[in-house]
Amino acid sequence: MGAGRWRLSPVFDVNPAPDRNPHLETAIIESGAHDRSILLALEACEFFEIADENARQMIRERARRISDLWREALRQVGVSGALARQYEPAFINDQTDLANNV
């Protein structure tokens, strides 16, 4: 927190795992579900003092950026072809569709 306000920290230690159960290692909110869920993220926005519309905009922007750039990011580290396609479910899934339309 800075100046009495929450702010998002940079993302770290995030690894796409297309073959894993869509389960998060940490919950978004205390005593919350550990499911990968855009709707849970929206529910948590009030706790972090983020207005609903701002949260929706952040979610849409991040989802679009990830959708647009994940293939290139993998290519830059030498992952392409069939191996890159195996990672697609980690980036393009039902939560992606929801995030793009919140």
Rank of each mutant, 00 (worst) to 15 (best):
E72S: 09
R62L: 07
A63M: 08
D68K: 02
Q95F: 03
H23K: 05
Q86V: 00
R20E: 08
S37D: 07
V11W: 02
A17Q: 12
R65A: 12
L40S: 13
R85W: 06
A44Q: 13
L98I: 13
Q95W: 05
G78W: 07
R85G: 07
D94K: 00
R75Q: 13
L74C: 06
F48I: 03
I50C: 09
D97G: 07
A99R: 04
D52F: 13
P89T: 04
L83C: 08
L39T: 13
P18W: 00
R65K: 06
A3T: 05
R71K: 09
P22L: 00
A84Q: 15
N93I: 11
E46D: 13
L39R: 03
G32L: 11
R65M: 12
P22R: 06
V77S: 02
V77E: 08
L98W: 02
I92W: 15
N100W: 13
D52S: 10
N101I: 07
N21Y: 10
S31V: 01
A33Y: 08
H23N: 08
A44S: 15
H23I: 10
F47P: 05
D19F: 05
S37A: 10
R5W: 04
A63I: 10
S37L: 11
A84P: 06
L69A: 04
L83D: 09
V14S: 01
M1T: 11
G32A: 10
A63D: 12
L83M: 08
A27T: 14
M58H: 11
I92V: 15
R36K: 03
L39E: 14
W6M: 06
I59P: 09
A73G: 01
S31T: 14
R64W: 06
E43S: 04
S67W: 05
A17T: 14
E49T: 04
D94C: 02
A27K: 11
A44L: 12
N93H: 10
A90P: 03
G81P: 08
L98N: 02
R5F: 06
N21H: 10
S37N: 11
I50N: 02
R56A: 09
A41H: 11
V102A: 14
D35A: 04
L39D: 14
R75P: 03
R65G: 13
M58E: 12
D68M: 01
W70Y: 07
P89D: 11
I66A: 07
Q95Y: 01
V77K: 04
Q86C: 02
G2N: 12
Q76H: 00
I50T: 08
A51D: 15
S37Q: 09
P18V: 01
S80K: 03
R5N: 13
V11Q: 02
D52W: 11
L74V: 01
D35T: 07
E61K: 02
L40C: 07
D94Y: 01
N100I: 11
H23A: 05
N15Y: 00
